[in-house]
């Protein structure tokens, strides 16, 4: 199963301001311009509270921008649609349906497939995410990592042009999280579905990404884009490669600069960390 090579999203000059009673309005996004490359794993990273989720919600169509333009494959974007599917931070599998019923929900309610066709397709996709033996279980019977994969399957069956993943592995324990990253990478490398993956973890970002888009702290813009040309298919060996550390050092510098803005200026620990890291990377050179 491969996604078509489409789903190029162009965002230009996006602005979004939140008004809260009794507080100054908060400019979350200002002149945010970016491109989501089709067929690539685009990772959006930035300090927490910098407007990543706001951007994701706007792209998914749950929220509307104050100004700015968004196009998908050249045509303007309007409202939520199945061409852009979002996988959330918390699992939103319906607990009253089995894994299979959850997965076939999309194509059957839209009338695109008969129940039987959908079931066959779902079986293929559940095999892809490694849940073929659990298709008749209820979500509560699955572990956290399995629930996330079931959720991925529920999105994948709709063959979206773009997958928007908003910190999908948050809240999993470290080991499960690492396993999920590897698993997810395998799925991505098989499907090559255009993806916008949002995270706050740099290691995760570099490990998964084709491109890393680093966001500034409020107001949110794209600060820089780093191309990650680590070879695919990847496995955990890249985590110790020279290239990886170089990218990490580069990205960390940008990130710490932004991260400091949420703590104020006198954050020397961050500087020390960056220096230390640079030294490590140079040593390996």
């Amino acid at each position: 199963m491969r996604c078509e090579k489409s789903g190029r999203i162009e965002v230009s000059n996006l602005c979004k301001r939140f008004h809260k009673a009794g507080k100054d309005p908060l400019q979350v996004l200002q002149n945010c311009t970016l491109t989501i490359e089709p067929g690539k794993l685009n990772v959006l990273i930035g300090p927490s509270g910098c407007g990543k989720s706001t951007l994701a919600n706007i792209l998914a169509g749950y929220d509307s921008p104050d100004s700015g333009e968004i196009t998908i494959d050249g045509s303007p974007l309007k409202g939520p649609g199945t061409d852009r599917l979002m996988v959330f931070q918390e699992t939103a599998l319906w607990p009253w349906m089995t894994v299979m019923e959850n997965v076939i929900f999309g194509p059957t309610v839209r009338g695109e497939m008969s129940k039987k066709e959908a079931r066959e397709e779902a079986t293929r996709i559940l095999e892809l995410v490694g849940l073929q033996d659990f298709k008749d279980k209820y979500p509560a019977q699955l572990s956290g990592g399995m629930q996330r994969r079931a959720e991925l399957a529920r999105a994948l069956i709709n063959r979206p042009k773009v997958m928007i993943m908003d910190e999908p592995f948050r809240g999993l324990d470290d080991l499960t999280r690492e396993l999920m990253q590897e698993y997810y990478l395998k799925i991505f490398e098989k499907t090559n579905c255009t993806t916008l993956f949002i995270t706050t973890e740099l290691e995760e970002a570099i490990f998964l990404a084709d491109r890393i888009l680093i966001m500034t702290f409020l107001p949110g813009r794209i600060k820089t884009i780093i191309d990650v040309d680590l070879p695919r298919p990847r496995n955990y060996h890249v985590l110790t490669s020279k290239k990886y550390l170089q990218i990490k050092a580069e990205a960390l510098e940008y990130l710490i600069e932004e991260g400091r803005k949420c703590f104020g200026e006198d954050c020397n620990i961050a500087n020390t960390m960056v220096d230390e890291f640079r030294r490590q990377a140079d040593n390996r050179h």
């Binding site: 959330f88 319906w94 929900f105 999309g106 839209r110």
Partner: peptide, 21 residues
């Protein structure tokens, strides 16, 4: 949970299906 409604909406369910499912 609101997330259950949102998930059904973005998968293209109509009001009737949201009511039943």
């Amino acid at each position: 949970d609101q997330a259950y409604f949102r998930a059904a909406l973005c998968l293209g369910a109509s009001s009737k299906e949201i009511l039943y499912d």
